[in-house]
Amino acid sequence: MLLYVDAQYASPYAMSVFVGLKEKGIPFDMQTLDLGAGANRSADYAATSLTQRVPTLVDGDFRLSESSAITEYLDEVYSCTALYPDEPEAKARARQIQAWLRSDLLPIRQERTTEVLFYRPSDAPLSDVAQQAAQKLFKVAETLLSQDRAHLFDAWCIADVDLAVMLNRLVLNGDAVPGRLADYAKRQWERASVQAWVDLPRPPL
């Protein structure tokens, strides 16, 4: 199995699939692409990745891009260590959380890029629109993590990683985050599969 990721190991979406593979204990190799140089738009990669993005997973003759599609595929094909809850409503909620984090909260993603997570913090204050997005994030997260849950559901799932990434864009930058949510993000960040990604050797920016 082969996983294509970005050369900086900074894509939260590549990270999500990497963590999923680690959690399942599936052996895999990684191939990096220099997105800044447009390596993902090369003819060779276009023949491998339908959407010409990272991550892309190669499993035998099957090639699949888009992170949540990949983690869902892994869960359906490889039974070891579930990445999603078994119960249909909980599974649907986990997928909703993933889709929401990938499609909303753009001001946070713009002003607290993944450089904050893997390289250095930003010294620019959050704009008003980013602060509004942060308040929306906090409200949703507090609703999902009611009663001081350790995870979004009864057990860890891959959506915990995605939510922790979004929260840690703020936590690791020193922005104000409610204590309970900051503690949750810290616990998720300490997970061995997550730390395996955090500890990858990164080239300088």
Rank of each mutant, 00 (worst) to 15 (best):
A92P: 04
A92L: 04
R93N: 13
R93L: 15
I97Y: 08
I97T: 04
Q98N: 15
Q98V: 13
A99G: 13
A99F: 11
W100K: 13
L101F: 06
S103Q: 11
S103K: 07
D104V: 08
L105D: 02
P107L: 15
P107F: 10
I108L: 13
R109C: 08
Q110R: 15
E111S: 06
E111Y: 11
E111V: 03
R112T: 05
T113Q: 14
T114M: 13
E115L: 06
E115C: 11
L117K: 01
R120T: 10
P121A: 10
D123N: 12
D123C: 07
P125C: 12
P125H: 15
S127R: 09
Q132P: 01
Q132C: 12
K136C: 09
L137K: 00
L137V: 13
K139L: 11
K139P: 08
E142Q: 09
E142C: 10
T143M: 11
T143P: 05
L144A: 08
L144V: 12
L145D: 03
S146K: 14
Q147S: 15
R149W: 03
R149F: 06
A150T: 14
H151A: 07
H151M: 06
L152Y: 00
L152E: 00
F153M: 06
F153C: 02
D154A: 10
D154F: 14
D154I: 13
A155E: 11
W156Q: 07
D160K: 03
D160R: 01
V161I: 15
V161F: 07
D162G: 03
D162P: 02
L163G: 00
A164I: 03
A164E: 02
M166Q: 10
L167A: 00
L167S: 00
N168R: 12
N168L: 06
R169Y: 05
R169D: 02
L170H: 00
L170G: 00
V171D: 01
G174P: 07
G174E: 04
D175I: 07
V177C: 03
A182V: 02
A182R: 03
D183K: 12
K186G: 09
K186Q: 12
K186H: 08
Q188K: 02
Q188R: 10
R191Q: 03
R191C: 07
R191M: 07
A192V: 11
A192F: 14
A192R: 09
S193N: 04
V194D: 05
V194M: 13
A196Q: 10
A196K: 08
A196F: 11
W197G: 01
D199W: 13
L200M: 14
R202T: 03
R202S: 09
P204Y: 14
P204W: 12
